[in-house]
């Protein structure tokens, strides 16, 4: 187990290094932040001076090595726009993104588990077809369209909920629904498939032969086994929801890390972009690791070595 964990941590470190190189190179290839930082009226001499101050006049490999040396000590540089440590800016936004991700996943699980069960049990029936149709729709609807539709209906027409922004629990509802729809569809489909497989298992036939009620057979015996693949999908969806909230956060003006990333990219705030991408990578790797470890705990047949 410890060997496995050590191996995973080493591979995570390598992944992070690769991510950092890619994000560094891509960010620096896309444009010059200095001209965007200064007013249009700034002279070439001023631009050169600021470029020098920020260390952007040095060769790219040197800039990367300096960045990497600081990064391993936890210093991801200062945001050019916020004029404070990039990590500090991100940590200020993490609670909002985490709240949104947790709310979205709560909605997703609350809908996906019952629909997945109903679909599998009544396979081919009207409820199954309806659930599958909705699930397809959930995966196909783009978040920016759904978000704007929800705003128009619930904020502008009905005036039940705030249109955008943050500051009260009500502000969380529409973005959480928008963000939660995609994992709802995904989890529901996976659960349906794995539950169907479980329902064909020998132990289900045995349980039924013992005379157990159908609900006990499904919920107690089949579902317990069918949940295992769903755990992986839930874990991965959580990572994707956390990192993929960019569009939802932008549409709803939610003050999270996703919106911060979009701003940072459009303003060429390199240190902030790098720090956010690295933070996302760390979160994703951690969730993956936790899911894999959890898998071993949940299923005695899986042994991690």
């Amino acid at each position: 187990m410890l060997t496995y964990l050590a191996g995973r941590l080493i591979s995570a470190a390598v992944t992070l290094m690769v991510v950092s190189v890619v994000v560094f190179v891509v960010a620096h290839l896309t444009g010059d932040p200095v001209r965007l930082l200064l007013p249009v009226e700034a002279s070439t001499q001023e631009v050169d001076r600021v470029r020098q101050q920020l260390g952007l006049d040095e060769p790219l490999p040197i800039q990367y090595l300096r960045f990497a040396a600081h990064a391993v000590q936890g210093d991801l540089g200062n945001s050019l726009r916020y004029r404070q440590p990039a990590l500090e800016v991100i940590l200020g936004r993490v609670p909002a993104t985490a709240a949104l991700a947790v709310a979205a996943m709560t909605i997703a699980l609350a809908i996906a588990i019952p629909t997945g069960i109903v679909s599998a049990v009544g396979r081919g029936g009207i409820l199954d077809r309806l659930a599958r149709g909705l699930s397809l729709l959930g995966q196909a609807l783009p978040a920016y369209w759904l978000g704007i539709m929800l705003i128009i209906v619930f904020a502008v027409w009905l005036r039940w909920l705030p249109a955008a922004g943050a500051g009260s629990p009500a502000h969380l509802i529409l973005p959480a629904i928008t963000l939660g729809l995609w994992p709802t569809a995904r989890i529901s489909r996976v659960l349906r498939a794995s539950l169907l497989e479980s329902l064909n298992g020998d132990y289900v036939r045995t349980a039924r032969a013992k005379g157990l009620s159908e609900s006990r057979v499904v919920l107690r015996h089949a579902l317990a086994n069918a949940l295992l693949p769903a755990v992986t999908v839930v874990g991965l969806s959580f990572g994707i929801v956390f990192g993929g909230a960019i569009i939802t956060e932008t549409v709803f003006a939610w003050p999270g890390v996703g919106r911060l990333l979009l701003d940072a990219v459009s303003q060429r705030d390199y240190p902030l972009v790098q720090a956010i991408v690295l933070t996302f990578a760390v979160v994703f790797l951690l969730i993956n690791l936790v899911v894999d470890l959890l898998y071993g705990v949940l299923d005695p047949r899986v042994r991690l070595a």
Binding site: I151, A155, V156, A163, A164, V251, A253
Partner: peptide
């Protein structure tokens, strides 16, 4: 002062009285 990068969200906030 608030910020909403998406123009349709800004308009909706105005229309919704927010």
């Amino acid at each position: 002062f608030k910020a909403a990068p998406e123009a349709s969200a800004r308009t909706a906030m105005l229309q919704a009285g927010q």
